[in-house]
Simulated scan of single mutants.
Amino acid sequence: MNQKFVELGIDDGLKSYLEGLGYRIKKVFPSESYNCTFLVEHDRYSGLRVVKATSIDHWTKLYNQSEWIREKKNTGMVPKVELVSQSSQFCHYEMEYLDDAENLFSFIHKSSLHQIEKTFDRVFTFLKDHVHTSSPLEIRDDGARDYIHRKILHKLDESEAHLPLLAKFTRQQTVSINGTDYCGPRRLVEALLNDAAALRKVATFRPSFLHGDLTVENILISPSGPYLLDPNDENILSSRALDYAKLYQSLESGYEFMRLTKVLRFDEQRLDFDLEISDVYTKVFDLVQLRVQEALRPDE
């Protein structure tokens, strides 16, 4: 269950809400957002389905996510949304369970490079034909500052509230990560906010519809091909580059490996960890990078 929900006491309420609707919860999937994902049974149908649920405070995001999926139901690359519902406290949507699908991370590590290449070609074609749009360049100076405050500083505040040691680390002028000295996180953000040229670069983009959270873990692979999950519409600077940056986050930065990494040392000035990214991730990043260069204009 989502740790934030556990701390807020929402987890039991969510379970009671779903059970009151007749769902039998078979599994709860780990989550790092305010949406919780359940594998469920119900007397209305045979077999299993997936339910995404959250508190009513986050209804808009959950509803928009379900609508994004519904709008693309005929593409063959999203699961079918069967039901959307809400109460005074909670809300949820129900979608098909792809019991023959596996996550892209596993697929990458057991498939040939040719199979992986074909899969990413389908993902890029889907984005081009059904998601991304091309618009004139815009400059949104206020949007850049808003983005930094909401997406970086707000998340730092939330994380520091849960981890006092992290608060000490992020507020240092200089920190050491795996033996290399870097500017402290909050000092770095402050420097960005005071750099007019850098802010203007962030604020200049071509607005587009997006998936919004296109990491490796949000792509499933079934025998019929890839399925995209968990779109996110909370993107202030909605450039197509953001979708590709999310893939870079996975394939170049090793996001999925980082989540499995053991921290060797962490104190208020130093962080040491042992991160090993597989060779196949590096090869897949190279082929994805070529496709990104073909998909984006030079000014994006």
Rank of each mutant, 00 (worst) to 15 (best):
P207W: 00
Q3S: 12
Y147S: 13
K118D: 12
Y255T: 05
N194S: 15
F257G: 04
W68D: 02
L62M: 07
E96H: 01
F273D: 08
S250D: 04
K27I: 00
G9W: 09
P79T: 02
A241C: 07
P298K: 04
D100L: 04
D11M: 02
Q172R: 15
E276P: 00
S250A: 04
V50P: 01
F126R: 00
E117D: 15
L251H: 01
Y97H: 06
F120P: 03
E217Q: 12
L156F: 13
S31H: 05
C183R: 11
M258P: 01
S85F: 12
S46T: 08
Y244V: 07
L83A: 05
E96M: 03
S85N: 14
T133F: 01
P136I: 01
D141Y: 14
F105R: 12
S278Y: 05
L290F: 09
L192A: 11
V288L: 05
H42T: 11
S224M: 06
C183K: 08
T125C: 09
V51H: 05
C183L: 13
L83T: 04
T37F: 07
D233A: 15
L192T: 12
V81C: 00
T215A: 10
F107V: 04
I10V: 14
A161Q: 09
F29S: 05
E41L: 07
G20I: 05
L127W: 06
F29Q: 07
L290N: 11
E268N: 09
F209R: 15
G22H: 07
L21Q: 10
Q249N: 15
L260V: 00
L14M: 15
N2F: 01
I277Q: 10
D141A: 14
S159L: 14
T204W: 07
R171V: 04
H42P: 03
Y45V: 01
S238K: 07
E71N: 13
K73T: 10
S85Y: 13
D286K: 12
I139E: 15
I148D: 02
S112K: 10
L199V: 07
R297Y: 09
D11H: 10
Y34C: 08
D12G: 05
S176A: 14
T133I: 06
H132A: 03
S112C: 07
L98T: 03
R49T: 02
L290V: 13
V78H: 00
L165F: 06
G22Y: 05
C91Y: 00
H162Q: 14
L39I: 08
S278R: 10
S134N: 09
D142Y: 10
L166P: 03
S88A: 15
